[in-house]
């Protein structure tokens, strides 16, 4: 039966291209790569104008970590659009509608949840990951860290929770929809409010910049964590989709 399926899903051979095509592709890419390599090595390094500019303006950004300042103040359009991209991916992977009221519900499939090693590992791992996520979020204002790192660590904690198969995630519930969209919504609202004060969209007033960045960062962290976790649970089928699927994955 598998032989009828396309080679994209069968692991029988590394490549389906004929040998001639492979050699041709390899030679073209070798030539192009060599040209790129040569161009990279021969180009003189640009003077760090942007770095100087950032360090000059850092005092007006409201935070002390230059990367956070660039992400959430100087180039916050990038971050806004990035969260929009994440939201689009999350919407594309939304499950079909069902009436599951809660985000996390105990699974009916408790057979594999009695694994002692896994349970005692995750009993330490998950609270520590949540703690580290919060720490990274808070420390992002003046040291390396911030919304993306905290969101990724929180999502990883959720992935660990999903891997126990003890819980199921109802991503179509209202609470989950709020979690997923809160980042973009609060980001845009902050942009509009600060735009009404200063006249430019997303231009924070200097005195309130630290507070606004913190608000946006917390919302972005929650949304990034929820979206990444949703992507994983959809892929690993740890979410609630229909009455038949619960217990089907054991």
């Amino acid at each position: 039966m598998f032989r009828e399926m396309s080679p994209s899903f069968t692991d029988t051979h590394a490549s389906t291209l004929p040998r001639v095509a492979r050699v041709l592709v390899a030679s073209v890419i070798t030539a192009g790569g060599a040209a790129l390599l040569l161009a990279t090595l021969r180009t003189d390094k640009a003077p760090p104008e942007l770095a100087v500019l950032v360090s000059e303006q850092l005092a007006t950004s409201g935070v002390e970590n230059p990367v956070t300042a660039v992400l959430l103040n100087f180039r916050s359009y990038d971050t806004l659009l990035e969260i929009a991209v994440l939201l689009i991916v999350a919407i594309a992977m939304q499950p079909h509608a069902s009436s599951q009221p809660r985000i996390v519900a105990p699974s009916t499939n408790n057979e594999s949840a009695t694994n002692l090693v896994l349970t005692s590992l995750l009993r330490w791992l998950i609270p520590l990951s949540v703690l580290v996520g919060g720490y990274l979020l808070w420390t992002g204002a003046y040291a390396p860290g911030g919304a993306f790192q905290a969101g990724a660590v929180l999502a990883a904690a959720g992935v660990a929770l999903a891997l126990t198969e003890r819980y199921q995630f109802g991503w179509q519930s209202a609470g989950a929809q709020w979690l997923i969209s809160a980042g973009l919504a609060i980001f845009i609202a902050t942009g509009i409010v600060s735009g009404m004060v200063t006249g430019t969209f997303l231009q924070y007033p200097v005195t309130y910049a630290a507070t606004l960045i913190l608000v946006v960062e917390i919302a972005a962290t929650v949304s990034i964590a929820a979206i990444l976790l949703q992507l994983f649970t959809r892929l690993a089928r740890a979410d609630v989709t229909s009455p038949h699927t619960s217990g089907a994955s054991s």
Partner: peptide
Amino acid sequence: WDVAIAEAAIGAGLTGALLLAA
């Protein structure tokens, strides 16, 4: 350093789990 923390979280934890699940 910021990128190192993010890559440690995503590269070590999430991507591997995603690929193995798929």
